[in-house]
Amino acid sequence: MCATCGCSDNSRPRLTDLETGLAVPLDEPAEPPRAEHLRHEHGQDRPRVGTTISIETAVLAKNDRLADLNRGWLARRAILALNLVSSPGSGKTTLLERTIRDLAGALPMSVIEGDQETLHDAERIRAAGCRVVQINTGAGCHLDAAMLGRALEQLNPAARSVVLVENVGNLVCPALFDLGERAKVVIVSTAEGDDKPLKYPHMFRAGTIVILNKIDLLPYVPFDEAKFDRHVRAVNPSLRVVRVSATRGDGLSEWYDWLRAAAADVDATVARADL
């Protein structure tokens, strides 16, 4: 461990359970060799000299496959999983702390924290009274479906509960990596400027709801709300915008209503499937 900032000098991904304090490396277990691979080793259909081999595989097929497994795992337990994405510092952890405190008892919740380094955010969530595991991605700039799968196993969330996943602060890369979540919640803060949707269209396109946070700062920062709404609509007309201040509390009831409705929706889907 580095003495200056407490970060680990290990750049590999790891998973820490805040209840036990135990950390395990998240390096993927070696995949079992595929059938065709074994055949090649017997030297039978080794590609001939100068051959073109057609592959036609999506580069992220493996992540997408693992995300589907996570989606199935969550659906069987009627768990609502949300992927919270934003730039660093927009207020994801603050919003989670507040949500946990305000909805304690009313909505069973647990949290998966994603950061490159430190357990700081997970410790904040635990202090708010919530079950949490921390993924440290090391050099990685986003969570992927394999990491989420391992974290879900460790977290072991209750059936019919909500799992809130705080992704690594980054508005680019998490847009590409499906985790198996029900929806991406995009968080932007007023201090970041009203042109964020135009600068990061992939993420705003991938999101289901945008939380505009830090509206308490509107008097002090150059942020044009009408312009922001226009930019959101230009990129993704079906995106819903909820304005909040996670510190002062403005607008949070609208976010809670959305959250409860989404959880009820998952419940209803499973109830129908049970019939």
């Binding site: 590609p47 000299v49 100068g50 051959t51 073109t52 592959i55 580069v59 269209p201």
Partner: peptide
């Protein structure tokens, strides 16, 4: 050339048809 834009009619409600491919197509070996 971006996941958002405007139609000539001024509409911004666009359904993406293609352009998100990230596909390994073929390799050549000797």
């Amino acid at each position: 050339d971006q996941p958002a834009g405007l139609c000539a009619c001024g509409g911004a409600d666009l359904e993406l048809l293609s352009g998100r491919q990230l596909q390994l197509k073929e390799i050549e070996v000797i």
